[in-house]
Simulated assay, not measured.
Amino acid sequence: MKNTFILLSLAFAVNSFAQSSKELAPKKFLNSLSQLCGTAYKGKIVSTSVPEDFKDKELLMYVMQCNSDQVKIPFFVGDDLSRTWIFTLKGERLELKHDHRKEDGVADEVTMYGGTTTNTGTNNIQFFPADQQTVDLLAPTAGNVWYVTVDEFKFTYNLKRVDKESAFSVEFDLTAPVQTDKRPW
């Protein structure tokens, strides 16, 4: 009886640890982003096709605002300061929204699109399929899946349209922070 109790206790402890580890992945991911707060990094397109408005432009991400539930990362493309990625913890899931602004700071007509993870992901990668708000805003985005990776060496932002062959990926070198005075519109 004593051995059975010990085995059951051990099994429960292992299962609880496994469950808590899964539940913590979005939080650990967000914490990894928060550790970069106040720092900027240069990026480069690593996908085969480069969007026309990105060609020959400096790409910077600036981890601007961080708290326990949200991280805001402006993504600068040359002098275009209109894009900010917003990662928000929503219970056991993580949400990614794209905040687009005009030069006067007013919200763009196409803004706050993105998605929420459908599973806990891992500490280093999260997947964001387009949510209903996004599809309502832009019907062709129904097949969009954004995924973001972070480790001690690099951060990648990726977009795959499951109904298309092409993909978009930009990689930022986290080993070489840069100085910038740029701020989003």
Rank of each mutant, 00 (worst) to 15 (best):
V71E: 01
E92I: 12
H100K: 06
M112W: 15
M1D: 09
H98K: 07
I73C: 01
H98M: 14
T180I: 08
F168T: 10
D99F: 15
V77Y: 10
K42P: 11
L94Y: 08
S68C: 09
L8T: 11
N15S: 15
H100G: 10
M112I: 15
V77S: 02
L81H: 03
T122A: 00
A130M: 01
D99W: 11
G143N: 15
F76D: 01
K72N: 12
N123R: 11
D80C: 02
V170W: 09
T39Y: 15
S16H: 07
G143F: 12
S166A: 06
S20K: 04
W185E: 04
Y113K: 06
M64Y: 05
F172H: 01
G143C: 13
E109V: 11
H98F: 08
E52D: 15
G121Q: 04
K55V: 13
S32C: 12
K57Y: 09
F75A: 00
S16T: 07
T141S: 12
F76T: 02
Q179T: 11
F5W: 15
N15I: 15
V135N: 05
N144S: 12
M1I: 12
G43W: 00
T156Q: 11
S47Y: 06
F5K: 13
N3E: 15
N67L: 03
F17W: 14
D131K: 00
D151N: 08
Q65V: 08
E171W: 01
A176E: 11
K22L: 05
Q70I: 07
D79P: 04
K42G: 10
N124G: 09
K28W: 02
Q70V: 05
A18W: 03
N123H: 03
Q132N: 03
T180F: 00
S20F: 04
T116S: 06
N31I: 07
Y147P: 03
D163P: 13
A18Y: 07
Q65R: 13
A25Y: 01
V148D: 13
D131Y: 02
M1R: 08
S9K: 10
V148I: 15
L7G: 13
Y147E: 14
C37K: 14
S47C: 00
V106Q: 09
Q126H: 01
